[in-house]
Simulated assay, not measured.
Amino acid sequence: MQEITGTYNVTFVIVSIIIAILSSYIALDMCSRINRTTGWQKFYWFISSSILMALGIWSMHFLSMLAYKLPTQVTYEPGMVTLSVICAFIGTSIAFYLSSIRLTVLRLMAGGICMGAAIASMHYVGMMAMRLDG
């Protein structure tokens, strides 16, 4: 059996870190506006912050996966990639919802668990989308 070793494109890794920092900061700032608005504006801030956080998590992860170069061709199954984005969105939405209604320690912890579950499920579904030769 032969071991497959890969290398990382450092530029991609640095860009993915910047994406993670910026998207998290902006999405959490947008989420903080949920409690300061009413009506359709509340829904707008909720949806837009959830989408931004989910896409930030997903793009950081996917860019990091693209940064890893293997000596074999790697392709991605579009349906599974889409499902990984949906996992990130659902978990992020639940986390932001829990943290936007009368914030308590229990809700904050539940929101953190949901955010962690969103990241973990997005990661595993995204890894299942990878197709390698061999």
Results as ranks from 00 to 15, higher is better:
residue 1 M to A: 12
residue 1 M to W: 10
residue 2 Q to D: 12
residue 2 Q to W: 06
residue 2 Q to L: 11
residue 4 I to K: 04
residue 5 T to H: 15
residue 7 T to L: 00
residue 10 V to H: 14
residue 11 T to V: 15
residue 12 F to P: 00
residue 14 I to F: 11
residue 16 S to K: 06
residue 18 I to C: 13
residue 19 I to Q: 11
residue 21 I to G: 06
residue 22 L to S: 09
residue 22 L to N: 07
residue 23 S to Q: 03
residue 24 S to Y: 06
residue 25 Y to I: 11
residue 26 I to L: 14
residue 26 I to Q: 08
residue 27 A to K: 07
residue 29 D to C: 05
residue 29 D to L: 10
residue 30 M to A: 11
residue 31 C to Q: 11
residue 32 S to Y: 05
residue 34 I to K: 13
residue 35 N to T: 14
residue 35 N to F: 00
residue 36 R to M: 12
residue 36 R to T: 14
residue 37 T to F: 01
residue 38 T to Q: 12
residue 39 G to Y: 04
residue 39 G to A: 06
residue 42 K to A: 07
residue 42 K to W: 00
residue 46 F to S: 06
residue 47 I to L: 15
residue 48 S to M: 11
residue 52 L to I: 03
residue 55 L to F: 15
residue 55 L to Q: 05
residue 56 G to Q: 05
residue 56 G to N: 01
residue 56 G to K: 00
residue 57 I to C: 03
residue 58 W to A: 00
residue 60 M to I: 02
residue 60 M to H: 03
residue 60 M to P: 01
residue 61 H to L: 10
residue 62 F to Q: 08
residue 64 S to Q: 07
residue 64 S to A: 15
residue 65 M to R: 06
residue 65 M to T: 13
residue 67 A to I: 10
residue 67 A to M: 09
residue 68 Y to C: 08
residue 69 K to Q: 13
residue 69 K to T: 08
residue 70 L to P: 07
residue 71 P to W: 09
residue 73 Q to C: 02
residue 73 Q to P: 05
residue 74 V to I: 15
residue 74 V to W: 03
residue 75 T to K: 10
residue 76 Y to M: 12
residue 77 E to G: 04
residue 79 G to P: 05
residue 79 G to E: 12
residue 79 G to I: 08
residue 79 G to N: 13
residue 80 M to S: 08
residue 80 M to Q: 06
residue 81 V to L: 15
residue 81 V to S: 13
residue 81 V to F: 06
residue 82 T to N: 13
residue 82 T to W: 11
residue 83 L to S: 10
residue 83 L to C: 05
residue 84 S to R: 02
residue 84 S to V: 05
residue 85 V to N: 02
residue 85 V to I: 15
residue 86 I to T: 08
residue 87 C to I: 12
residue 87 C to F: 15
residue 88 A to W: 01
residue 88 A to V: 02
residue 88 A to R: 00
residue 88 A to P: 06
residue 89 F to A: 05
residue 89 F to G: 00
residue 89 F to Y: 10
residue 89 F to K: 00
residue 94 I to R: 03
residue 98 L to I: 07
residue 99 S to D: 10
residue 99 S to A: 09
residue 99 S to C: 10
residue 100 S to A: 15
residue 101 I to M: 14
residue 102 R to A: 14
residue 103 L to W: 00
residue 103 L to E: 02
residue 104 T to L: 04
residue 104 T to Y: 02
residue 104 T to D: 02
residue 105 V to Y: 13
residue 105 V to E: 14
residue 105 V to Q: 14
residue 106 L to R: 14
residue 106 L to I: 09
residue 107 R to V: 02
residue 108 L to M: 09
residue 108 L to Y: 06
residue 109 M to H: 05
residue 110 A to D: 04
residue 110 A to R: 05
residue 112 G to L: 07
residue 112 G to V: 09
residue 112 G to F: 06
residue 113 I to K: 07
residue 114 C to V: 01
residue 115 M to Y: 05
residue 115 M to P: 00
residue 115 M to W: 01
residue 116 G to L: 05
residue 116 G to K: 03
residue 117 A to N: 05
residue 118 A to Q: 10
residue 118 A to T: 08
residue 120 A to G: 12
residue 121 S to K: 06
residue 122 M to R: 01
residue 122 M to E: 01
residue 122 M to F: 04
residue 123 H to E: 07
residue 124 Y to V: 04
residue 124 Y to W: 14
residue 125 V to R: 02
residue 125 V to T: 12
residue 126 G to N: 11
residue 127 M to D: 10
residue 127 M to N: 09
residue 128 M to A: 14
residue 130 M to L: 13
residue 131 R to Q: 15
residue 131 R to A: 13
residue 132 L to Y: 15
residue 133 D to Q: 14
residue 133 D to T: 12
